[in-house]
Simulated assay, not measured.
Amino acid sequence: MTATRAPKTLAAAARERRDIVSGEVMDEDRLIRFVVGPDQTVVPDLARKLPGRGLWVAADRVSVETAAKKGLFSRAAKAKLTPPVGLADQVEELMLRRLMDGLGLAKRAGDLISGFEKVASAVNAGKAAWVIEAADGAADGRRKILNVARRSPKPPQIFGLFAAEELGLALGAENVIHTAFLAGRGADRWTVDVRRLTGFRPLLPESWREEKPSEASGT
């Protein structure tokens, strides 16, 4: 007897959209929403709040570039649209800004802690969903915190794309090198955005990717 798939709930079905490039129906969390701007341009809508019909594209660089080059935005909208030059780069920058803003919100909500000892304690206790390391931090300190992450009962994922100065500005502090995003709903929401970013760039600088714990794939 052939097994049948369980029917989707109404809520799950409502969160699905069709990728205009592949034609695949998938969850919104795996897609980037675009809308038509007032001057018939293509506008990214990462927060999914702008008015107008959404044009959905899989959250990766190749899909966004294909949609722009092959006129798929125009086909989906049934109107002549002009995607801006470098649309995929624009999406990537907007995602990085959104992630940075998310860290600031997490700090104010008490979901973010900084400092080697505090981060190490949270990681050892299995309470950290993410360890966010300054991209330009010293290699010795980074190796130590990643070794702690390797031994954690719940190894956190690792993010290393923001410099110490950027983290300091977002968190209202100085010399921010080691940060932990504590597990919870805030971290879950941040993770969704991080996963979309992985379609555009790795989560770690190439210069220290080999230091990443094997257990924490960074999605």
Score class of each variant (00 low, 15 high):
G168A: 05
A13S: 10
E28I: 06
D193H: 14
D60P: 12
E133Q: 14
E174L: 12
N147P: 14
D101N: 14
E165M: 05
R53A: 07
P213A: 11
G186W: 05
S114Y: 10
L103N: 09
V119T: 06
P213I: 08
A76K: 15
W56L: 10
S217C: 05
L55S: 05
T41M: 07
G184N: 03
P155G: 01
F162K: 10
A149F: 01
K70I: 08
A12L: 13
T179G: 08
W190H: 08
G218F: 07
A129L: 09
G137F: 13
A125N: 12
T82K: 11
K78Y: 00
A180Q: 03
A109F: 12
L167Y: 08
P202N: 02
R53M: 04
R150H: 05
G126W: 01
E16Y: 07
K212M: 09
V57W: 12
I32V: 13
E210T: 11
L112F: 07
E16F: 07
G110H: 06
V131C: 07
A59T: 13
V25L: 11
R48M: 07
K8T: 09
G102F: 04
M1P: 14
L31Y: 02
A170I: 08
P84V: 00
Q40V: 03
A67T: 06
I32R: 15
G137Y: 11
